[in-house]
Design a protein around this nucleic acid. Structure first.
Length: 828
RNA sequence: GCUGGAGUGGUGGAAUGGCAUACACGCUGGUCUCAAAAACCAGUAGCCGAAAGGCUGUGUGGGUUCAACUCCCACCUCCAGCACCA
């Protein structure tokens, strides 16, 4: 389609972009934290080209920053790049540039794109996580964690991606596959570094109470991920052995119904338990087979339950009953204690297992609606009910019994109350090149020694064979590996794994405050004045990983006295995805929309306006090129409104006898619009309705143009309305607004102007339209003075011919009056 | 399975107890034009009707209320997260 140029955006936009930079509109002096507003957008991974879906995040953030500026805040909006990571390395392996070159190149491209969008930042604070002056402090944080016992190394079964040839955190395994390449994840037994995030599980959960301004869905996801369960740990004696088996249950009310016990195949006592069994070899082979099944296959709920009897029995502490001890594939070593008491009558998994292996089923909680019979049950009864077959607890409600039995257990020392979490410690070592080296040295004499602060950063060597082999590429550099022990100066070797990039991004928001400091990660005094972040904006895909890790690191830094707050982000906004043809835009699906072409054709303001107008920003939205044209037409309309307003011939002065109805109406609309836009921006991020409100004002201004020719009062109100339109859209479409502002004869940048406030008296209406209903159906409308009394209004309504027509011959039961809005006549 | 979120014209959406469909896209007709584009004007939920007007209508079925897209109960569908978590 051929498009006419509706206004000279191609001249205007570069002009004002240059102006903002020259006038340092977005550069902040952090020494002055008075009235501060820290507006943070999630920093991106530097990819080759941004599409319009990426743009939503930055456009929203830019609009918020500009709005807050006009509200008089000292707004800090920094930007940086989450620059370590696999894609750059994988590209390099395919024979492209070194990761550093491609990353820095991509950063340059992205900054140009931000520029063209009119998305401005305080670039003097730019943070790039792959630069030594940044990762020096990522390493410093690791060293601090190590010092406090919160970073540790252990051999563990870990998630291994055979394609990326690296381990993955639990959070990075999606549907059993690698989050990057979807290759099925396998298990590998490796020595790995972990961060003890589980230590913070209770606080990460409890402090969510402080996050009132976070989206509920994000909090729910984090809560589920942390996965707290309250229950009881119970010790079962093993018949004929000294050892004790501890299990965890949330359903201690079912303890009298435990008919067997089951262990995870990986349980450390398994081999000892089967040692003297007569068919030990066969047993051990079976158990080995269960272990070898991948965790992914095993964790599928549809997988057939399997197990073997160990030949041993344990003693139920409440009644001394001897119950058989099994090893079963559905028991997870990672959760609880890796051992469960099985109650087939009241747990579906145990029920399935008992049916398969013909184990007894004992009902201990009866269904109050229909009594249960263990022989004929088709599925486990998992609801609440009345205690049965449970000695002194019979007759209690099962909910009471949970507490009563827990008390009894603690009294008798059979066990104690306990809390379990699904959250696992954070596995951070990666056998890859493009990441921050873990600052650890192994000395034959001194063991594991963290690199002292004065020796940081541990530089990532440039010349390395980084093709993945399953071993860390850094191992290939003997210059890197061989070093001296910082303690004894003896020969030593370096850790060759690098850190998960989520470590880099878990603290970047602190670095922006003092980005160039080289003797500290940040200046605590300033950071404590500027943080928590006032508004954080980003994609919901980071609801768990990045946000949880950042909360963890902040709490840690708070505990060691480096910051005085324990939650980093006050308000969080997560924008929805932009889709094309119903699916997320991505290069691989070939459905991306490039902003460059659109900006050339319509200008950046059009792309910004459409992006904000497309729908509620927290929801996903389908991109429409037609919609872009609509936004463009609107800007053209605003542009012409300004010109037409100027060209209206001046009315002859003799008509100036006070404001006309048109003038009062337009003035009211103007102030209603100020109110609506302000409330839409303050109350949430309702850009779409704010923009439609301004569109209405523009439409009404056009309608008043003919009146302005003959009526001086309309002319005056119209020019005020036009000025307001420009101010109200300026955070959304900054270039055209600056230009129009200048053409209105204003001297300063529009973003230095105070946001308008509305005049409540201008909102008042002299007459209102009253909707008249008969039996709840709209039958008529009346114009009435806005200060009319209820009684007078009723009288007016009852005189309305329409109402009379319907009311004829019927008794009036009631007349409901909603002042200034509606009257409902209720007929019998 | 569990936990959230959502379901409104041809489309994106607006309205959180009081005029359902604001605003925009699309479409139809018109003005201007040799023609087109742009701009401007009018129309645009469905059904009946020449019209006036009437009836129906916010996923489905019930309920509360003078009044329900909005609140309550049950269900259906879609999306997202989690999922053998004891």
């Amino acid at each position: 389609m051929k498009t006419e140029k509706l206004y000279p955006f191609n001249e205007i936009e570069p002009k004002w972009q240059k102006f903002w930079r020259q006038n340092r509109l977005f550069n902040v002096d952090t020494a002055d934290a008075k009235n501060k507003y820290y507006c943070l957008m999630m920093f991106p991974y530097p990819s080759a080209a941004l599409h319009v879906g990426h743009g939503r995040n930055y456009i929203i953030g830019d609009a918020v920053a500009r709005y807050k500026m006009m509200r008089g805040f000292n707004v800090l909006t920094p930007m940086g790049f989450d620059a370590f990571g696999l894609p750059a390395e994988n590209a390099a392996i395919k024979g492209a540039l070194h990761p550093e070159e491609s990353t820095l190149g991509n950063i340059r491209t992205m900054k140009e794109q931000f520029n063209k969008w009119g998305v401005e930042y305080d670039w003097e604070r730019e943070v790039i996580s792959c630069m030594p002056d940044y990762y020096k402090w990522t390493q410093w944080i690791f060293a601090k964690l190590y010092e406090k016992g919160l970073a540790y190394k252990k051999k563990a079964f870990v998630n291994w991606c055979p394609s990326c040839k690296t381990v993955l955190a639990n959070e990075q395994v999606v549907d059993g596959g690698c989050e990057r390449c979807s290759t099925e994840v396998t298990q590998k037994d490796l020595e790995q570094w972990f961060l003890r995030i589980t230590h913070y599980a209770p606080r990460l959960l409890k402090d969510m109470g402080k996050l009132a301004e976070w989206p509920e869905r994000v909090k729910i996801m984090q809560r589920n991920w942390i996965g707290e369960s309250r229950g009881v740990e119970i010790d079962f004696r093993i018949d004929g052995m000294e050892d004790v088996l501890r299990c965890f249950t949330t359903r201690v009310d079912t303890i009298y119904g435990a008919t067997f016990m089951a262990l995870a195949p990986e349980h450390p006592l398994v081999s000892k338990l089967i040692k003297e069994a007569k068919d030990e070899e066969k047993l051990s082979r079976e158990i080995q087979r269960m272990r070898n099944e991948s965790k992914i296959a095993r964790s599928d709920a549809d997988v057939e339950k399997e197990g073997v009897f160990t030949g041993r029995y344990v003693i139920n502490p409440v009644n001394g009953a001897k119950i058989p001890l099994w090893v079963a594939n559905y028991i997870l070593m990672e959760y609880g204690t890796g051992a469960i008491m099985a109650v087939p009558a009241h747990d579906q998994r145990d029920f399935d297992f008992a049916k398969k292996y013909d184990l007894p089923i004992v009902v201990v909680i009866d269904d109050p609606k229909s009594p249960l019979d263990a022989n004929s049950m088709k599925e486990a009864y998992v609801g609440e009910g009345v205690m049965a077959n449970s000695a002194q607890f019979n007759g209690l409600s099962s909910t009471d019994a949970v507490e009563r039995i827990a008390d009894y257990f603690e009294e008798k020392k059979f066990g104690k109350r306990s809390v379990q979490y699904k959250l696992r410690d954070w596995l951070i070592s990666r056998q890859r090149y493009w990441g921050a080296p873990i600052p650890i040295i192994y000395c034959r004499e001194c063991g594991i020694v963290p690199v002292p602060e004065k020796d940081l950063p541990v530089l990532l060597p440039h010349d390395v064979e980084f093709r993945p082999t399953g071993e860390s590429p850094l191992k290939s550099s003997s210059r890197f590996v061989n070093t001296k022990c910082p303690k004894c100066a003896g020969p030593a070797t370096r850790e060759t794994d690098t850190m998960d990039t989520f470590v880099d991004s878990s603290w970047y928001y602190l670095r922006y405050i003092t980005p160039k400091l080289n003797d500290k990660p940040f200046d605590p005094a300033l950071v404590n004045r500027w943080l928590p972040v006032d508004q954080y904006i980003g994609g919901v895909e980071h609801a768990i990983l990045h946000l949880l890790y950042s909360r963890f690191i902040t709490k840690f830094l708070c505990d060691i006295g480096w910051v005085s707050f324990d939650e980093p982000f006050g308000r969080l906004f997560t924008q929805g995805m932009i889709t094309k043809n119903g699916v997320k835009m991505s290069k691989s699906k070939g459905n991306t929309v490039s902003p460059d072409e659109l900006i050339n054709k319509y200008g950046a303001d059009t792309v910004r306006l459409y992006t904000l107008f497309i729908g509620p920003p927290e929801k996903d939205a389908e991109w429409s090129d037609r919609g872009v044209e609509g936004a463009y037409r609107f800007l053209g309309r605003v542009w012409r409104l300004l010109e037409k307003g100027h060209r209206v011939p001046r009315p002859t002065p003799h008509q100036s006898q006070g404001p006309s109805k048109e003038a009062i109406d337009l003035k009211r609309k103007t102030h209603q619009t100020i109110k609506k836009v302000t409330e839409d921006l303050d109350g949430g991020f309702h850009f779409n309705t704010a923009i439609s409100a301004v569109m209405e004002l523009v439409n009404q201004s056009y309608d008043s143009l003919p009146h302005a020719e003959s009526d001086a009062s309309v002319r005056a109100v119209l020019s005020a309305a036009v000025e307001m339109v420009v101010l109200l859209i300026s955070p959304f479409v900054p270039h055209i607004s600056e230009e129009m502002w200048q053409r209105l004869g204003k001297k300063s940048s529009i973003f230095k102007v105070a946001w308008p406030s509305y005049d409540a008296s201008a909102l008042a209406e002299q007459t209102v339209t009253i909707v008249v209903q008969v039996n709840g159906k709209v039958r008529s409308r009346l114009e009435a003075p806005s200060d009319i009394s209820d009684a007078e209004l009723k009288e007016m309504v009852m005189a309305d011919p329409k109402v009379l027509q319907y009311a004829q011959g019927k008794a009036i039961k009631d007349i409901v009056v909603v002042p200034k809005k509606l009257v409902n006549v209720v007929l019998a």
